[in-house]
């Protein structure tokens, strides 16, 4: 028996909206500790990793570990039927479920929707993600980072990110010209302006903006984002989800020939 009830169902809707352009089908692994999901994009350039802790759910029960193979496109069709203020419950009684039940309830419990989504059997291609002690970590407004990526992608499809003790520089070079945006440490008490740099070792890495713009669809999940980098490592972009877990995106760098 597996049942997970999320008080703020809108969070689940936002998570699916954040990843639906990146991955087509995913395995959600349910265990006693919560839900986890890991999937690569079709080009195997990016990887998304979701972890939702059981104590972030209103109700959570998972008698034995199960894997739920979902089509993201079909899942988002079902979630379109959930209101932003609804609770969302996922449920199945079977051990090898062929479908997953969804219940959407409004606040007054005066409207209850029930859907059943057919499950897919997907080969689990899970990768080992080593715990990395990143040498450059940037915490900043997710809206601001999203804006920087959008603006720079009109000049080039590649961005170079260079960190130093007191600032991070996003540079682009394209046919029309070049540009850079330098953001300094800023302990402002305004969220949108605050920038926290923890630079043990400066890095200079290059990434495809197309992927960063897709990751930034997760801005509605958290007002801050963290960029985690080490030389010769994929960038890790993390959106923490209050009291529930985190949505992480990993992006392999572009190496100059």
């Amino acid at each position: 028996m597996f049942e997970a009830k999320l008080q703020q169902g809108v969070i689940f809707k936002k998570i699916v909206d954040a990843i639906k352009d990146l991955v087509k089908s995913v395995n959600i692994d349910a265990s006693t500790s919560g839900l986890s999901m890991q999937a690569m994009d079709s080009a195997h350039v990016a990887l998304v990793s979701l972890k939702l802790n059981e104590n972030g759910f209103k109700d959570y029960r998972c008698d034995r570990p199960i894997t739920l193979g979902l089509s993201i496109e079909n899942l988002s069709k079902i979630l379109k039927c959930a209101g932003n203020d609804d609770t969302i419950t996922l449920q199945t009684d079977e051990e090898e479920p062929s479908s997953l039940k969804f219940f959407f309830e409004n606040q007054q419990a005066s409207k209850i929707s029930e859907f059943s989504l057919n499950l897919m059997s997907l080969d689990s291609e899970s990768l080992g993600i080593p715990d990395t002690d990143y040498s450059s970590v940037i915490q900043m407004s997710s809206a601001e980072f999203s804006r920087i990526c959008k603006e720079l992608s009109s000049i080039s499809e590649t961005v170079e990110i260079e960190t130093s003790k007191e600032s991070v520089k996003f540079s682009v070079q394209g046919d029309i010209g070049a540009g850079s945006i330098t953001v300094k440490n800023n302990q402002s008490d305004k969220d949108v302006d605050r920038v926290d740099l923890q630079i043990d070792q400066p890095v200079k890495l290059t990434f495809a903006l197309r992927y960063l713009n897709m990751f930034n669809k997760a801005v509605s999940l958290s007002s801050t984002v963290s960029l985690n980098m080490s030389e010769e490592n994929p960038l890790m972009v993390e959106y923490k989800i209050d009291d529930l877990g985190s949505l992480r995106f990993y992006l392999a760098p572009k190496i100059s020939d």
Binding site: H44, V45, L47, E125, L127, G128, A252, K254
Partner: peptide, 14 residues
């Protein structure tokens, strides 16, 4: 010019 690496260059299949 630069070459896009794959995520599987860095993370091993389990």
């Amino acid at each position: 010019k630069s070459t896009q690496k794959n995520i599987t260059n860095y993370f091993q299949k389990q």
